[in-house]
């Protein structure tokens, strides 16, 4: 593992960022957390991220727009959508627009870790991920 996986996490829920930063850090990812989509988009323009994890419903800009912006800039970046409004139509739209995966809230840290591991594999990274948290 030469280079850590660069991840941008965008969710207007503060706690999501607070909890997921260490959760993903523990599997060797470098996580930057944003609550404001505008700031996140700015950061994406500055830096190339391997993975972008974004909420769909946010004030100002929605996750699908972020997805489009990310792919415009760097098509290889994997975008993972998370949302509380888990509807099939929404998931389908996200996947059609090229999202890597779609996670419905509420999820456990391991659920995201598993998806991230899958994405890392697709990107050619390998991250050690053994689900260790208590199930259920």
């Amino acid at each position: 593992m030469s280079k850590p996986l660069e991840i941008l996490l965008l969710d207007d829920e503060v706690i999501v960022g607070k909890r997921l930063k260490p959760a993903l850090g523990s599997i060797g990812c470098n996580v930057e957390v944003f609550q404001d989509p505008e700031l996140a988009v700015k950061r994406i323009a500055e830096k190339d991220f391997d993975i972008v994890v974004t909420d769909i419903y946010m004030d100002g800009m929605d996750g699908l727009q972020v997805l489009e912006l990310v792919h415009e800039k760097l098509p290889r970046t994997k975008v993972i959508m998370i949302t509380g409004y888990a509807m099939i139509s929404l998931a389908r739209e996200a996947m059609e627009k090229g999202a890597f995966d779609f996670i419905a809230k509420p999820f456990k840290p391991d659920d995201l870790r598993a998806v991230i591991a899958k994405a890392a594999k697709a990107l050619g990274f390998s991250i050690e991920f053994n689900p260790k948290s208590v199930r259920g």
Binding site: E13, A23, A86, K105, P106, F107, K108, P109, S133
Partner: peptide, 18 residues
């Protein structure tokens, strides 16, 4: 309700883990 529930779930799981 999924938003606070997600926050609780993440927090509790991180508590359990760490």
């Amino acid at each position: 309700i999924n938003n606070p529930l997600n926050n609780i779930m993440l927090t509790v799981h991180m508590l359990l883990e760490d």
